[in-house]
């Protein structure tokens, strides 16, 4: 987290939010990807990725919660008493999580049933809390929204990749639909829809992500 702020402090003031917007976006979604680099919030990443649809909804939920809580925490950052800031953050995050959960229950019943307790458990997701504490508390609202989007996307994209491969390999289908030719020929690999498959898939995705990204700057020195 510390290197993140120093990276932001050095960039030149121009463009969106004095040039910090793009850096923040890149930092959150790529260079400091919450799942692949910081390895945060993997409980939900392991639990709900057995179907692509579930992964997408979970990713959307996290983007919504992350953006909402970052915005409110950032707006209130000057009047929040330091001693109770964490409790205040949790209260704000919980509000957004329950809002999303209620929305799913009311309008996407089937999805809500499949995701089970994992939407509610976003409250304990380290990514959301971490961004509120480390970023939104020190930065203006619009930049905090950008940060929320960046981290949410960083999480959602990886989740979608894992969900895509787990569903494809585990059931031979995509989004619950059969693929012509492929589905008839393919023998579903059941381990991919079970929990061990999630560990294997997550490990391989993180490995490939890091291989593409290359070592972190401080490791190069």
């Amino acid at each position: 987290m510390a290197d993140k702020q120093s990276a932001c402090a050095t960039c030149q003031p121009k463009g969106l939010c004095g040039g910090k917007g793009l850096t923040t976006l890149k930092e959150g979604a790529w260079a400091n990807n919450p799942l692949a680099i910081q390895v945060l919030g993997i409980c939900s990443a392991l639990a709900v990725t057995n179907r692509l649809e579930n992964s997408l909804v979970m990713g959307a939920a996290l983007i919504f919660v992350c953006v909402g809580s970052n915005l409110i925490v950032s707006l209130l950052r000057k009047c929040t008493p330091y001693r109770i800031r964490m409790i205040a953050e949790v209260a704000i995050i919980a509000t957004f999580v329950i809002l999303f959960d209620q929305f799913l229950k009311a309008f996407y019943w089937d999805m809500s049933k499949q995701l089970g307790p994992y939407v509610g458990l976003i409250i304990t997701n380290c990514i959301v809390m971490g961004r509120a504490e480390a970023f939104a508390l020190q930065n203006p609202p619009i930049l905090s929204i950008v940060d929320g989007i960046a981290n949410g996307i960083g999480y959602a994209v990886i989740l979608a990749i894992i969900g895509f491969f787990r569903e494809l390999l585990g059931t031979g289908e995509i989004m619950g639909r059969t693929i012509p030719v492929f589905s008839e020929w393919y023998t579903p690999n059941q381990i991919m829809i079970l929990a061990p498959g999630a560990f294997i898939a997550l490990g391989i995705v993180i490995g490939i992500f890091n291989a593409i990204k290359g070592p972190a700057p401080e490791e190069k020195k």
Partner: peptide, 15 residues
Amino acid sequence: TLFYAAVLGTVCAMV
């Protein structure tokens, strides 16, 4: 601090 907590709690609960 107490006042802040009360207001935040009330707002969240209302929402």
